[in-house]
Design a protein around this nucleic acid. Structure first.
Ligand SMILES: [Mn+2]
Ligand SMILES: [Mn+2]
Ligand SMILES: [Zn+2]
Ligand SMILES: [Zn+2]
Lengths: 147, 147
DNA sequence: AATTGTAATTAGAATGATTCCAATTAAAAA
DNA sequence: TTTTTAATTGGAATCATTCTAATTACAATT
């Protein structure tokens, strides 16, 4: 498996904007996040990516994840003090919330109307420039579900 | 300064519900959070509390903060991977959001209508039992403000 | 009050995700 | 090419938090 040309182009573009180079490592890590539905941690991404690129280092995984986050290509998701997880930051789901199930340990996306996030400005001080919204939900879903 | 009798009673009640004892350390740490507007970290609470109780240990501060959180008396607030901060969990502001200013480093409460949080259930899977909502905002406010 | 059993506190060691560092390698520019 | 600069690498360091084993405080019982 490998990055399709559209995804590859948006990676290169986003890196170029920041004056950064597109490298094999950045590509393969972007691809790993792109193909993951499960919001993997850096460690998990490391183990997945090592299959295709055995020489990659954990430090590089952390470096690339930070770079991709700073470029707005992926999102870093934090629950309490657990290891950070990552997911794709696409245009349509740019600001989705995250739900964490305490039964299964799984994290999934919760797509909310943009209006929901816009509304927040009404409750903030006028001089506060809102840059980022992190909405993390936690709870339990029936153990007998298949997803 | 010391805990007023109403606050002291709610501390004792909340601890009793969980079969826990009210101790000098738990009281003084609850008081420290109660009297803090600034969402202090465990370390900061430790240094404040040491003035009145020089022998207290950092481990106890962590223990008590966890106990008070589990009793629903205080809230643990996490921004990215920074050290956890704590604030009072009062009935009226039970679910307030938190805003972090990247200029000043300060964290402040953002009170939102309960309806805002209730709304979330509409976008969650039917079998998901929502237990906790963490809404963390970040951005910048003018440096020339006084609060 | 003294004894007993249990819970809480304490100091210090351990943990572990992440970051830092100095050396090497890869990529782009000249 | 040669040169310059950016990125990667392995391993050490960081540091908020958790763990552990010993001590102390508390409360129930004799
Ligand atoms: Mn960053
Ligand atoms: Mn807990
Ligand atoms: Zn996501
Ligand atoms: Zn608060």
């Amino acid at each position: 498996m490998s990055l399709n040309s559209t995804a590859k182009q948006s990676l290169e573009d986003a890196l170029f904007v920041k004056g950064l180079r597109s490298t094999k490592q950045r590509e393969i890590i972007y691809e790993a996040v792109l193909n993951s539905e499960d919001h993997p941690s850096a460690d998990l991404i490391y183990s997945r990516v090592k299959e295709d690129m055995p020489g990659i280092s954990l430090a590089t995984v952390y470096n690339c994840l930070e770079t991709l986050t700073d470029c707005g290509l992926i999102r870093q998701v934090n629950f309490e003090r657990q290891p950070s997880r990552f997911c794709l930051a696409t245009a349509q789901s740019a600001h989705h919330a995250h739900a964490h199930c305490k039964n299964t340990g799984k994290v999934f996306d919760v797509v909310l109307p943009a209006q929901f996030f816009d509304e927040l400005n009404k409750y903030l001080p006028a001089d506060f420039q809102l840059e980022k919204v992190d909405l993390c939900l936690s709870g339990k879903q029936s153990l007998s579900q298949k997803n």
